[in-house]
């Protein structure tokens, strides 16, 4: 029997406002004219310039080479998010399968070789990573954007944990039914992992979509720019301009946040599951 106090609601409403109001204001301001924002500040009501602004941001060629459009950046972000999520799931499921279901020499050593990647985030080895990429001629490629980010074992641990919770009897039954390792993996384990895969997919998609530093270093060719990279360039253009294109910056921000936010809101339950069970 909990008594509900108005104070509880007041705190929650305040918290929700603090978190959501900036997003709403960014959204609303993106539909206003730059000059209005410049003179009146940010808006919490929609304006009339929305269609024009978004049309411009999505289709107008910008940048130094005049090649990059918002649409292209959106596509690149999507490739980045999806590629990263899919790559992560494929690689880590396979590795976890080998570590859990096989008896082989150096298994423990391999386990720790992969585990050690959790110790050091990409940011601390950014310089040498860049050098490696340039030696491998992977700058300005999708491979260079996505694959190096897969070198962390978060997903592997998640699936390893999940496979361990799968009852032993399942493998025994499958072996009696004559399934070999590959068949067992594809026919039993993969279908069984569907929920887990979806949860991890959501987390990883957001992670990939939101990457900033790595694309910043990997891409100098504007046709590989993601939205995050685009935000960096739009800010660089600002320096020195009289009335910055506030509305366009906001529109870009909105484009950059809508897909991941939508994913989180729509798949909230699965997202929380993926997050709290996989830790990072």
């Amino acid at each position: 029997m909990q008594k509900i106090k108005p104070l509880d609601h007041a705190i929650l409403i305040l918290g929700a406002l603090f978190l959501c109001l900036p997003v709403v204001m960014a959204l609303m301001s993106s539909t206003q004219a730059a000059i209005d924002i410049h003179s009146n500040g940010l808006y919490i009501t929609p304006g009339s310039e929305g269609a024009a602004t978004y049309g411009k941001v999505l289709t107008q060629r910008g940048g130094f080479t005049g090649d990059v459009t918002g649409l292209l950046m959106l596509t690149n972000s999507m490739i980045m998010g999806l590629g990263f999520a899919v790559g992560k799931i494929v690689l880590s499921m396979m590795a976890a399968y080998a570590l859990v279901y096989f008896r082989f020499r150096f298994a423990t050593l391999m386990f720790w070789a992969i585990f050690a990647t959790l110790l050091l985030p990409l940011e601390v080895r950014i310089m040498p990573s860049y050098q490696v990429m340039s030696e491998l001629h992977l700058l300005n490629t999708y491979t260079g954007l996505i694959v190096p980010l897969l070198a962390s074992a978060t997903g592997t641990f998640f699936f390893r944990q999940f496979f361990r919770s799968v009852p032993d009897e399942l493998l025994e039954a499958a072996r009696i039914d004559g399934a070999g390792p590959v068949k067992f993996f594809i026919d039993v384990l993969v279908p069984l992992s569907k929920t887990m895969m979806s949860a991890i997919f959501i987390i990883m998609f957001i992670y990939g979509w939101n990457q900033y530093l790595w694309p910043l270093l990997m891409t100098t060719d504007e046709s590989f720019f993601t939205l995050m990279r685009g935000i960096k360039s739009i800010l660089q253009v600002w320096v020195g301009s009289q009335i910055p294109d506030y509305n366009e910056a906001f529109a870009l921000a909105v484009l950059a946040m809508v897909p991941p936010v939508a994913v989180v809101v729509i798949f909230q339950r699965m997202f929380i599951k993926g997050l709290t069970e996989s830790d990072k």
């Binding site: 959501c20 939101n210 921000a253 946040m257 994913v263 989180v264």
Partner: peptide, 12 residues
């Protein structure tokens, strides 16, 4: 409402 902001990228 409280969760949705999680998905916003740090640069955004």
């Amino acid at each position: 409402l409280l969760i949705s902001v999680y998905a916003i990228a740090p640069p955004v």
